[in-house]
Design a protein around this nucleic acid. Structure first.
Lengths: 214, 214
DNA sequence: TATCGGCAATTGTGATCACAAACGCAGATG
DNA sequence: CATCTGCGTTTGTGATCACAATTGCCGATA
């Protein structure tokens, strides 16, 4: 195999996948944005073969939609689908937070508070991409403690599908308030309050949905 | 594009994907079973290019695992991961059933009963593959009524990951009892009993987990 | 008999090419 | 001014090839 295993070398298609995945999940691409095999191939100076694998993989995860003729573009979600994805987030993330709670020590809460400060800065600067990235980092850091890799992978797929739409929503809303629900989450973590944690996580995840129903 | 759109022609890699996906989800492959690009290519009389796309896609969905050197094989799940996947099933399928309940009319219940009879036949014949397929068909038929395609797709991915393991489990257990929990589900559907439905679905989904903790 | 070393076969990766279908813009037509 | 018709360009698909790394088997050695 051409895949060098020494150190942490990654195959070309895997580098492409990770790079594009970040772009999509963190809202750097608008909904409906088209991508072509040769376009991406030229941008990354590779042939179309690894690009095809990366785009197909992203499409399989719902990060890209494929037109009937096979063209790739970021998905433009309907309101119904947004509601569904938000409900999935609520279901899974409440469970992940619950599983993380007994393992959440002070060091974790402090790390979360640091991330929370970064979120506040991003909000103040109205930097949508940084806001989305740090916000997801907050959630991921908490859920990593749940020791539930399959659940985390599933919810990350949901985040991925919502990426372009979240960018469009947050960019439109221009919210100015710091992350209120995150403070509730931190308080519940410190107090070991499981019911309170579940309510706080559910509220945080569902919050974005409310401003959709404008 | 080489993709003919007339009628319902599918690209070669898509045919491969669907075929292999069925094999895996319905337990026709054992855990840890290896697959090679050239092996599959020869079996389906195509080149390695479409095979690579199909296998990569399945790997992205967790239906196949990739070794450090890039080889493909069906996943051999740890007990922890099985517990996680069962918990995901419980979370999502309870929600899907709840959403399907208000739309579940008599015709649907009758279709479910027909499928249930087929399940009993498969159990009596100790046909693990048919049992798994018809059992999932029972669940899918119910959940289709929920009008929640993203949730259904997510839970199908979970089914996919558990396919080979379920085959190994059911093959070992040789259960003889007809689907008890399914009768409870049907009764709750007929009665419009949402709490009862949620309990029945959760029990049905978690049931397989218990015989794992032998 | 068990273990190690080495070589041949196997395997995944990425580049390149031909091909057919869809796209998109320009020009003709009403 | 709006709509349709062509035609060149763009795009995804699948086959093939060279390559490098892994695998696995066979024989040598202790």
């Amino acid at each position: 195999m051409a895949e060098k295993l020494q150190d942490s070398y990654l195959a070309a298609h895997d580098q492409l996948y990770r790079n594009l995945r970040m772009r999509i999940m963190y809202g750097e691409l608008r909904p409906g944005q088209a991508m072509t095999l040769r376009g991406v191939a030229e941008e990354f100076s590779v042939s179309v073969t690894p690009v095809r694998e990366a785009l197909k993989r992203l499409a399989a995860e719902g990060a890209l939609s494929i037109s009937v003729s096979g063209r790739f573009q970021t998905p433009a979600l309907t309101n119904d689908r947004i509601e569904e994805l938000a409900a999935l987030r609520a279901l899974i993330e409440v469970e992940l937070a619950t599983r993380a709670l007994p393992r959440a020590h002070m060091a974790l809460v402090e790390r979360l508070q640091t991330i929370n400060n970064a979120i506040s800065v991003a909000v103040a600067k109205a930097d949508a991409v940084t806001y989305i990235r740090t916000n997801l980092e907050f959630h991921r850091t908490l859920y990593l403690r749940a020791q539930a890799p399959a659940m985390l992978a599933t919810v990350e797929t949901v985040w991925l599908q919502m990426g372009p739409t979240m960018r469009a929503l947050y960019g439109r809303l221009q919210r100015k308030d710091p992350p209120m629900h995150h403070r509730l989450i931190l308080a519940a973590l410190k107090a070991g309050d499981e019911p309170g944690l579940r309510v706080a996580v559910r509220a945080d995840v569902t919050q974005g949905l409310r401003m959709l129903a404008r």
